[in-house]
Amino acid sequence: MSTEVSSAAPEIQVKGLHKSFGDNEVLRGIDLEIGRGEVVCVIGPSGSGKSTLLRCVNLLEEPTKGQVFVGGTEVTHPDVDIDAVRRRIGMVFQQFNLFPHLSVTENLALPQRRVLGRDKAEAAKVAADNLRRVGLSEKADAYPSSLSGGQQQRVAIARALAMGPEVMLFDEPTSALDPELVGDVLAVMRMLANEGMTMMVVTHEMTFAREVADRVVFMDDGVIVEDGSPEQVIGNPAHERTRHFLSRLLDPAMADVEEEVSDQVGKGE
């Protein structure tokens, strides 16, 4: 495994990425670079391939063609130690995916001990530090099932942070939450962005994208349609498809009508 890290190299680099599920080509040639400390929000209609792109970055999905580099290491290289690469990439899922048989502290401590080989005391200390960061110290001994969705997602973020990642991937982190719980999770993500974490966020939260992202990437039908600053992509989109998507998002009353039309044109996920 040849690892070349230079300060100029992007933290995440995607080159000519293709991904098919059977006959269904979900990603059709993606090129993307994310610099160190950059926050990039990926937006787009469901079925546009944005989650698949995110999952290709830590190889939860195996790309059909193309390359992905994280911190200078080629993730898509056949001989890569994928477990070692994933230790440097934190991931947060739509459905939280906390381990239900473990307490909150154990959720954070067990991966550190099993994967990083930290001893019990150190793992517990790192767990406590990260629970404090997401404001859930008082839930240390609770089990996931007794927490609200928003609390579970903050624990999931803390669990990823406890591994000391260089990059954080967020896969629609607030889509499964009740509206009133979204704010707490976004606040934690905002804090991370301010601390300089490199973040790739698949989201439908336009306010978050507008306020926190350095760049917004709009995807549709397996390709990147538009890539630029939030003001540019959300405020003043250059492409018809981006305008169309944003207008549907901002005026849900129209969504049903247009959903039927687009269903006839192309099948989503």
């Binding site: 830590n58 939860l60 477990d83 070692a84 994933r86 230790r87 990439i89 934190g90 991931m91 899922f93 459905q95 995916n97 906390l98 381990f99 991966p111 099993r114 994967v115 990083l116 999931a156 669990r159 990823a160 591994m163």
Partner: peptide, 14 residues
């Protein structure tokens, strides 16, 4: 659930 394996793998578990 499948998400349990995915979460574990994303944390670096073999």
């Amino acid at each position: 659930p499948k998400g349990q394996m995915e979460a574990a793998r994303s944390l670096g578990f073999s």
